[in-house]
Simulated assay, not measured.
Amino acid sequence: MGELCVHSVLVTGANRGIGLGLVRHFLGMPNPPKWVFAGCRDPKGQRAQELQNLASKHPNLVIIPLEVTDPASIKAAVARVGEQLGASGLNLLINNAGIAKPNPLDNETLENMICTYTTNTIGPLLLSQAFLPLLKKAAQGSPGSALSCSKAAIVNMSSSAGSIEEVFLWHYGQVVSYRCSKAALNMLTKCQSLGYREHGILCIALHPGWVQTDMTGGSESTRAPLTVDESVQGMLKVLSSLSEKDTGTFLNWEGKVVPW
């Protein structure tokens, strides 16, 4: 199994947690992408300071202002990425931006459901639609017909919390709106795999594991077992191995199938 080798990648929600970890690892590869695009809401804000520090050291890192729920922001991001890439397309779109609101079933609200769905499910839909021309261009410019992440791929960051069969960590946190949004994201991934296969684009839902991030929080006794680095290293290894047979599947950070 070789190392993931891509010309260009865009990671959303890249200013912290798993998104920032992905950016760091892409930049640290022996053969890094020519362009790493890091999307975040406020590139000049305090929460993007680490991203800014990385950009000052890596000329191949381009920070993109991006609010995944705003069509105008998405359109501007596509124009900026397309301008930077020129004649080449975008190889890898990682829809990582996401939110979780820890409401239990009895207290779930209309506002929470709409807000969470808009970011976690509709955001990846809109991003993938908008970047489709650049993904198609990358696929057309890659030799051979076999699907792979090096050719063109959409990776939707899901969660086994969205697995209807597993209902991962129900007693840790019901987070109903988050679970429902990720189950819907899984169906979106399956639909994308069917709709975009003819364009040479691989589509997959990926569970990063239960990772120590600002989102998971928790006390010492309920701390997530995985570090960001462990999760990201595992996921990049999985992405490097994906092929035709994997499009439309739901895998975890170790490459194991997660039940729908």
Rank of each mutant, 00 (worst) to 15 (best):
S163M: 01
H171P: 14
A153E: 05
K182M: 01
V175P: 09
A161S: 09
C149H: 12
K182C: 02
P143V: 13
L169A: 08
K182N: 01
S181H: 06
A138G: 07
G173F: 01
G144Q: 12
K136E: 11
L134Q: 04
A161G: 04
A161P: 01
M157Q: 05
Q129A: 08
N156W: 05
S145P: 15
G141S: 14
V155F: 00
L127H: 08
Q140F: 09
K137P: 11
S160Y: 15
S128P: 09
F168C: 10
R179T: 02
E165G: 08
I154L: 04
K136H: 12
I154N: 03
A152L: 03
S142P: 13
S163G: 00
L134P: 04
S159D: 06
S148I: 09
H171A: 14
Y178L: 08
P124H: 00
F131T: 10
S163E: 01
V167R: 10
G144L: 11
L127P: 03
S159V: 01
I164T: 01
R179Y: 04
Q174H: 06
N156G: 09
S159G: 02
A146H: 10
C149K: 10
S159E: 06
V167D: 09
A183E: 00
A139P: 11
S148G: 12
Y172H: 15
V167L: 12
G162A: 07
S158G: 05
V175M: 09
P124M: 06
E165D: 14
V176N: 11
G162M: 09
L127F: 05
S177I: 01
K136Q: 13
S142M: 12
F168M: 12
S163C: 01
P133R: 06
Q174K: 04
L132S: 12
I164K: 05
F131R: 11
Q174G: 03
S177R: 02
S145F: 11
I164G: 05
A152D: 04
E165Y: 12
S150H: 11
Y172T: 15
S160F: 11
F168L: 13
L135M: 09
A153V: 05
V176M: 09
P133Y: 09
S160H: 14
G162W: 00
K136Y: 09
G123C: 03
A152Q: 07
A139Y: 04
Q174F: 01
E165H: 15
V175A: 12
R179N: 11
S177V: 00
E165N: 13
K136A: 04
I164W: 06
S142I: 07
W170E: 14
L134D: 02
L125R: 13
Y172C: 14
Y178C: 07
G162I: 03
L147F: 13
S148V: 11
G173T: 02
S159T: 10
S159Q: 06
A146L: 13
A139C: 01
S177T: 03
A152V: 02
C149I: 08
W170L: 14
G123A: 08
P133D: 07
W170G: 10
C180G: 03
A161L: 09
S148R: 12
E165T: 14
A146Q: 14
C149Y: 07
Y172D: 15
Y172K: 15
A138Y: 04
S150C: 14
F168T: 05
L169C: 10
L127R: 05
A161V: 00
K136N: 08
